[in-house]
């Protein structure tokens, strides 16, 4: 019984992590049809930014909750600047090229940014543990849960709800939906697609840095954390359906729960879980769980 509870609890925490790192990626793919490898850099910049902010803020006996907010805002500020620079400075030059070529552009930028991180922060690693320590824990039987993890699940759920509402209820969200469905028709009806692209990419970048910022307290912020996140986020998005927010949420939940069950019941297969789930889902739903098949044009 406790194991079953633990599987659900751990699964939800892992799903929250996956959703937070995948949501920006799927948004950018949905609107711009760009599989953005630079997303890994956004995550890393977010984590490094949050660690820097934590270094500035804590040890000054200021309230902890504001410190966490400061970390997130600092990191998302970095995402805003980085997103603007990349979209206006580089991606703008390659729109209209083959999708794969654009993937490679983002890969090239990712390689460059990996070394930019070393230039800015050096090769040492950073901790940003203060918010997690301050959050404390609660006991459920023999199981101790971190309040920070519970907060992570709440943040992910709130983000899912917010993106859902933003897409359905706001003017910009409806414009995005139009562009997602048919770029050319949207442009023909006077939608400023260029602006939509810029805004989407910047939001995607900020969501990427947000993912890094909220994970920073749990991990050691060190070189190479971005690489690990890329494939994880790709897999979640492919399972859910490229460009679908609901898909990313469901994909994250499936992988999260499957992984938690594996760790508790069959630790041997943990390594295969994410790719196994991805291969299985794609074998039966070639376009992922939540994408409609593209109409075939003659």
């Amino acid at each position: 019984m406790l194991t079953a509870f633990a599987i659900v609890a751990d699964g939800l925490v892992y799903a929250a992590y996956l959703f937070l790192v995948a949501v920006g990626l799927t948004l950018i793919f949905g609107v711009m049809k760009i599989l953005n490898v630079t997303h890994g850099s956004f995550y890393a910049f977010g984590a490094y930014g949050a660690a820097t902010a934590a270094g500035i803020y804590f040890d000054r006996s200021l309230p902890d909750a504001l410190g966490f907010l400061f970390m997130i805002l600092f990191a998302m500020g970095i995402g805003l600047i980085l997103g603007l620079i990349l979209e206006r400075g580089i991606l703008r030059l390659v729109y209209g090229k083959d999708e794969v070529v654009i993937v490679l552009v983002t890969y090239a930028v990712f390689l460059i940014l990996e070394d930019v991180i070393t230039l800015i922060w050096g090769p040492r690693s950073y901790g940003a543990y203060q918010p997690m320590v301050a959050a404390g824990s609660i006991d459920v039987g023999r199981l101790t849960l971190s309040n920070y993890d519970i907060g992570l699940v709440i943040i992910a759920a709130a983000l899912a709800l917010a993106t859902f509402l933003a897409l359905k209820r706001t003017r910009f969200g409806r414009l995005l939906t139009v562009v997602i469905y048919d770029r050319e028709t949207a442009a023909a009806f006077g939608v400023n697609v260029t602006l939509v692209y810029t805004v989407t990419f910047v939001i995607g970048a900020m969501l990427g840095t947000l993912g890094g910022a909220v994970m920073a307290p749990k991990i050691s912020v060190t070189l190479g954390i971005g690489v690990e996140v890329i494939v994880l986020a790709f897999a979640v998005v492919a399972i859910g359906g490229m460009g679908s927010i609901e898909g990313a949420l469901v994909g994250a939940l499936i992988v999260g729960l499957a992984r938690a069950a594996a760790v508790h019941l069959m630790p041997q297969i943990e390594l295969f879980i994410i790719y196994g789930v991805m291969a299985l889902v794609l074998a039966f739903r070639p376009f992922g769980l939540f994408t409609r098949a593209e109409p075939r044009k003659i």
């Binding site: 633990a6 751990d10 699964g11 690990e228 938690a260 508790h264 943990e270």
Partner: peptide, 16 residues
Amino acid sequence: LFPKLFAGEYGAEIST
């Protein structure tokens, strides 16, 4: 337990 290299998140392992 054998989580993958650089997994970063160890919630399920810690629960176990």
